[in-house]
Design a protein around this nucleic acid. Sequence first.
DNA 1: TTGTATGCGTTATCAG
DNA 2: CTGATAACGCATACAA
Lengths: 333, 333
Amino acid sequence: MAKEKNAPTMSDVAREAGVALGTVSRVVNGQTVGDEFRKKVEDAIARLGYQYNNSGRSLRTGSTNTIALIIPNTIHPYFALLTHHVNMALEKRNYRMLLCFTEYDNDRETEFIQMAKQNQVDGIIALTYNPNLRIPDGIPFVTIDRFFSTSVPCIAADNFGGGWLAAHKLQEFGCRNLAFIRTGSTLTNEPSKRKDGFISACVDMNLPFETMILEDGQPFEQIETFLDSHIQDGKLSFDGLFIGTDYLAWQVIQALRKKKIRVPEDVQVIGFDGLRMLGNLGRVVSTIVQPVEEIAETCVSTVLSHHLSNVPSLICLPVKYEFGGTTREGNVQ
Amino acid sequence: MAKEKNAPTMSDVAREAGVALGTVSRVVNGQTVGDEFRKKVEDAIARLGYQYNNSGRSLRTGSTNTIALIIPNTIHPYFALLTHHVNMALEKRNYRMLLCFTEYDNDRETEFIQMAKQNQVDGIIALTYNPNLRIPDGIPFVTIDRFFSTSVPCIAADNFGGGWLAAHKLQEFGCRNLAFIRTGSTLTNEPSKRKDGFISACVDMNLPFETMILEDGQPFEQIETFLDSHIQDGKLSFDGLFIGTDYLAWQVIQALRKKKIRVPEDVQVIGFDGLRMLGNLGRVVSTIVQPVEEIAETCVSTVLSHHLSNVPSLICLPVKYEFGGTTREGNVQ
DNA sequence: TTGTATGCGTTATCAG
DNA sequence: CTGATAACGCATACAA
């Protein structure tokens, strides 16, 4: 069908070069070959415009040089960024990526794992939410942001440390009444620790705080209701908010401004993720930045060295705080 | 290496079912097989947990069920969205996507085309900028937003119509002094027609207009300079701007607000692309929306039916205007 | 170091 | 309609 009209093969090269098939293979794979043989082969390859065929190699070796990335979509900027860096990290190692969009669908998550095995991928990197997901064995598997067991490596940002840092930053910038807001409570994963780190820091610093968690499926209005219940005479009783994601933070900030609460004058806000406006412009909100590139790099190197038995089961990569217009850094006390 | 410990093959299934290898293949591929044979095979497949192996099929048929998507990155939201929909369109047809990020690098664009052929892909969908790019023959090739020749199908939004629509909308909303701003002038591609459509409409409507094009490599400040040169006593001489992309529009709006020019009160702005905040929240700017999903779908169906000789060489898909907070629709005159 | 030969899992061509 | 068998392009064990 889409087959090249008799693309030259290794045997063609061998015949053209007057050497054996095996020699061509060895040249192509960079193994030791006598100089003059190598030259003959290289010339023949150039003359014929020989193109390496991957299917043959895959069939023979059983490895496809492909890693599956299972992820909800590429529309949310965090996923888009992660996808980008995973693909770059793979490309650097001469691997390819099989992209699987789950759209947050539990069944699709399961099906893709099946499908990936079917496609003989050499490993799977997965960012999933299905509470009953079964990790396949017999294939290197790395998860992002979600710990399954000590036998399956989990890569994540230091979520606990990020929450802790956010609380400390808010305190440092003069906040004295904090609140934490996030969505999605059914699944406990690594990002859940953002709250834990935040609370830990608040307790340590002896700062009062509240938490508001929007259960899965609840409308955003619930958060507005929560905010309203903390507004008296047009004034919000919090002066610092830590919000689970930049995405949610953005929505909350819009809601606050609609209520005539000024950010950061009346209340300072720190989000989490480190998103940028339209991909690479300014920060959307002051934020705890995830080291996306390092996460991607670590996922790739881990999944590719999965056969080594001493891979750590949870790798937390350092986060950092970055200004995004919704804090008052000048006011450091 | 990553090879399953002796995964069952078609011959295993054949032996288990007591039928011939060919029969198993026919069952798997849904060809006509006697009912009781089919049953025997299906049972054996279930019993053995047989998994279809793609490398074998690819080697034999020369087709990999894979389409390469060559695109700058997945960080810019428009590309991210396009990537998403292309992958979904491919998945629907049981095809896979080989993602190639060019990072706007001319050499990488060229190399990926080579690489894609090497990987035996069944077709290429490419969004490129290299002025000297050579389209390979012998492989279905579809380009996005850039016309090469009548022999290579180009899919794009109706850019001319979009520019035309933007001018008309601005006029409809009461604007009488328009300007068009865009970046990137070296390469002439389909998006270049946004300007042509805009000008055509302005001329038709007898509306005065100016155009400002930021040459590749020039700093954004040039646009600020342009704006400044049209500000007298704190007032901008334009009351309507059509800007080549939402991305640039966002930047221009920030610059305007810094200059105390209010949007949309003092000047209305329409961008192009239809980006949403953080992927799927509100519009970034009032905009001409590209039909991304249809573009993706058309690319896929075109590249897969490329062997049909009567594919159109330029397909322009309809755009629409959508409000995004930077126009004054109430003020329709 | 190089040549030879085999088989990876599949599809397709033939006979039966 | 089914069974047997020959490729597809490559890597590799083994022989030279």
